[in-house]
């Protein structure tokens, strides 16, 4: 089952310039693993060597940050959109 994954500008060169790619996987962990396998230039940028999410990478299923769902075990389907978004300072601070 292919899930649409939106890439941030900074990762698009690693995917031949594409902003959205369709990636197989039933969980966020599977999707990110497949993504790195398909586009090796992303390796190490999303998941650390220990297999956890890189601290400056936020991954959303639709509108929700997976760190506060089931992290890499968060389930996804082809009806969802996964977005990878770098951590930035936001808001009316």
């Amino acid at each position: 089952m292919a899930v649409p994954v939106r890439l941030p500008t900074v990762l698009r060169p690693a995917a031949g310039g594409q902003s959205v790619v369709a990636i197989e996987g039933e969980t966020i962990g599977e999707v990110l693993g497949s993504l790195q396998a398909e586009y090796p230039a992303m390796s190490g940028q999303l998941l650390t060597n220990e297999g956890v999410l890189h601290r400056f990478v936020n991954v959303y299923v639709n509108d929700d940050d997976v760190r506060y769902l089931d992290k890499l075990d968060t389930p996804v389907s082809d009806a969802d959109t996964v977005s990878i978004i770098p951590a930035v300072a936001g808001g009316a601070a």
């Binding site: 500008t9 900074v10 770098p86 951590a87 930035v88 936001g90």
Partner: peptide
């Protein structure tokens, strides 16, 4: 975050 993250050169420019 929209276009605000477009200026990042790499993921390590991120900020928490």
């Amino acid at each position: 975050s929209g276009e605000l993250v477009d200026g990042l050169r790499n993921l390590d420019d991120g900020y928490i």
